[in-house]
Design a protein around this nucleic acid. Sequence first.
DNA 1: AGCATATGTCATCGTTCGCTGACAATCAAA
DNA 2: TTTGATTGTCAGCGAACGATGACATATGCT
Lengths: 93, 93
Amino acid sequence: MKVRSSADLGAVIRDRRRQLKLDQAGFARKIGVSRQWVIEIERGHPRAELGLVLRALDALDLTLDATTDEARRQNSGGVDIDAIVAKAKRGGT
Amino acid sequence: MKVRSSADLGAVIRDRRRQLKLDQAGFARKIGVSRQWVIEIERGHPRAELGLVLRALDALDLTLDATTDEARRQNSGGVDIDAIVAKAKRGGT
DNA sequence: AGCATATGTCATCGTTCGCTGACAATCAAA
DNA sequence: TTTGATTGTCAGCGAACGATGACATATGCT
């Protein structure tokens, strides 16, 4: 998922934490912060510490990727399915 | 580039800032922080504010993506073109 | 309903943020 | 070398961080 705001970050963390069936307290212990911190982060606190955020993502097996908009247009998200299919129907690869 | 630590983040920001031919002062003004802040971030300061970091990345036209290790194995570089083409040749979408 | 677990709220406290302003250090070009 | 721009360092200050602990609501299960 794209992370453009601290609210996005909070959503990503909360969703993933629940996927892994961790409660806030266990999650907090795992990354060495207070449960308060988890609450604030998941709420989208914009002034949280970068380092703790990275620790949290790591604990959730989430990796952060920084890419330029152009680079992304060429790769992953922007595969031109229609063109591929059209060519495929014509017998191309 | 993958961002696992604040040092990574600093490197990404510095490289991209230079790509765009911005000096620290201009960059700082653009995102509404002090030049001091830029210096600290590029040095890898781990306790920087999340919100300011996101503003900085935005100003550099950098987008952050949070993905699980598994998800990345399935997607990014690895769109299953063969499967798509095979289905297309059969007349599917 | 009752109970246990999970989540959210509040106040307090020590630490550190990011800003400002002035001053070095570094580097490039004339 | 001298100039100018860029980058790095320092001290001081107000504001906010994150931790702690106690309390208040959910939420879920029998």
